[in-house]
Amino acid sequence: MSDREEQLVGEFPLIPKQERAQIKRDLLLKSGHELFVSRGFEHTTAKEIAAHAGVATGTFYRYFSDKRQLLMSLLEDQIEMLMPPEPKWGVSDPESTLASLLESHDERLKEIGLQRLLPELLAKDTEFAEVLAAGKRKIFTRILSGLKRAYDNDLTWNDLDLNTVTWSVMILAEHAHEKMKHCGNQTDYREVAKVMCRIIFPPEVMKQLRTNGTVTKEE
């Protein structure tokens, strides 16, 4: 493997305007996606991506400076999909709503497949690691903001630190799909949602949410 392939460098490429060029670029993106998922980033080369797409290696470098640039193009529109789902509080039957969000997130991860590359990328590519970390910080801020509103409406435990609660919720949301790997049995997202809701809501609030749909603070 050449030094060019070894280094994870490169900027986002310009998207070609000609239809024929766009078709070739799309073929390379599809080929790269398939090979990255099946072989991993490290064991895939630009030459192999080009061959799998049915084009010359020189054609690959017409559209991408290296395999990292191709991968970043794949991830550019999918970073949000790789992020843990953002829960919704103060809704009717929050357990079912949250379980549905977690299941949908798991299905998206399986469909994309690129999450398998994350440990390899995070270890090598500081720029990508920062992009991912920035995305998580945004979600953390949004979840914390939602929990603060729930707190103001007397929906949450009043003796728990909301930053710690937010962190706990994100950890569960982000890693729920890995339960099989650690525990040996399939993830039951309803059970995960139940744990998350127990962290957030006192029992009487859960009862009111199920009965009335919402709970608001009396003025």
Rank of each mutant, 00 (worst) to 15 (best):
I79D: 04
T45V: 09
Q69K: 09
D77N: 10
W89V: 14
L74P: 13
F64Y: 12
G54D: 07
G90T: 04
M72E: 11
G90W: 14
A53V: 04
V91K: 12
L70K: 04
L75I: 14
R68W: 01
T45R: 15
E76A: 09
T57H: 11
D66E: 09
A50P: 13
E86T: 14
R62F: 01
E86R: 15
E48A: 15
V91S: 12
P85S: 12
A51K: 14
V91G: 09
T59I: 03
T45G: 10
V55P: 14
Y61P: 06
E48M: 11
F60W: 03
Y63Q: 09
R62Y: 06
K67P: 05
R68L: 00
A46N: 10
Q78A: 05
L70Y: 01
S65H: 07
I79Y: 15
A56N: 13
R62S: 06
D66P: 00
T59Y: 03
M72Y: 03
D77C: 06
P87L: 07
V55I: 13
I49K: 10
G90S: 06
F64V: 05
M81H: 12
G54F: 01
D77A: 15
V55Y: 06
L70W: 01
L71N: 02
P84W: 07
W89T: 07
E80W: 10
A46V: 08
L82W: 02
D77F: 13
G54N: 06
M72T: 04
L74T: 08
Q69N: 08
K67W: 07
L82S: 07
E76V: 07
T45H: 14
R68K: 04
D66T: 13
P87N: 05
A51Y: 04
D77Y: 09
Y63M: 05
L75Y: 08
E48S: 13
M83K: 11
M72L: 07
F60R: 05
Y63C: 08
L82P: 03
G90L: 09
A46L: 08
M81R: 14
I79P: 07
T57C: 05
V55Q: 10
F60H: 05
E86G: 01
R68N: 08
A51R: 15
L74M: 06
Q69H: 02
G54R: 01
Q78P: 00
V91E: 13
S73I: 01
K88S: 08
T57W: 01
P84L: 10
K67E: 06
G90M: 09
A46P: 09
A56W: 00
T45L: 15
W89K: 00
L75V: 14
A53E: 07
T59V: 08
D77E: 12
Y61F: 15
E86N: 11
D66M: 03
M72I: 00
A53P: 15
R68Y: 02
F60T: 04
E86F: 02
